[in-house]
């Protein structure tokens, strides 16, 4: 019989059959906290119900992208900040967009519009975006799982 077993057998009461799970918990908790912190940061723009379509193309996330959101109550957001209400004080929004365009021209504008708004509202927003000097837009949708 190998000597290893002899050593084990010499102290029978010290044998523990459980694996040491403490490092596993540590790693899991750290990963959990990392994901919890990252998840809210991934949401760009205001919270809207995006339209669902079946075959949208993937739009790569880039630093230069500018997200403009149109909510159901027709409030307009640049990034996470509310700027104007459509049909209301849109000049404030246009001024900000012009300033952003002057500072860094040629940016891609991603429009996140609520699915319940009318196309005319989105078109008026796009008109305003166009008037601010942007030409590349992306209309953000949600991919529906059922085809």
């Amino acid at each position: 019989m190998p000597s290893v077993f002899k050593r084990w057998r010499s102290e029978p009461l010290e044998v523990t059959s459980d694996p040491n799970v403490i490092p596993l918990i540590d790693v899991t908790l750290v990963l959990l906290i990392i994901f919890m912190v990252i998840t809210p940061m991934l949401q760009v723009g205001a919270a809207v119900q995006l339209p669902m379509t079946t075959h949208p193309e993937e739009i790569k996330r880039e630093e230069k992208q500018l997200t403009v959101s149109l909510r159901h109550d027709l409030s307009v957001y640049i990034g996470d900040t509310r700027y104007a209400t459509l049909y209301g004080d849109l000049s404030k929004f246009e001024a900000k967009m012009k300033e952003l365009n002057a500072r860094n021209p040629g940016r891609q504008v991603l429009i996140k519009a609520d699915r319940r708004v009318k196309y005319g509202d989105v078109r008026n927003l796009m008109k305003s975006v166009q008037a601010s000097g942007f030409a590349n837009v992306g209309l953000i949708v949600d991919k529906s799982r059922r085809s």
Binding site: T39, P56, Q130, A135, G138, I140, V141, K143
Partner: peptide, 21 residues
């Protein structure tokens, strides 16, 4: 959380141009 992150990280839509007026 891992699933939510992978779902959120994908951004889909339609790229288009606004022709100059």
């Amino acid at each position: 959380f891992m699933i939510v992150v992978t779902v959120l990280i994908a951004q889909v839509g339609y790229l288009s141009k606004l022709p100059p007026r």
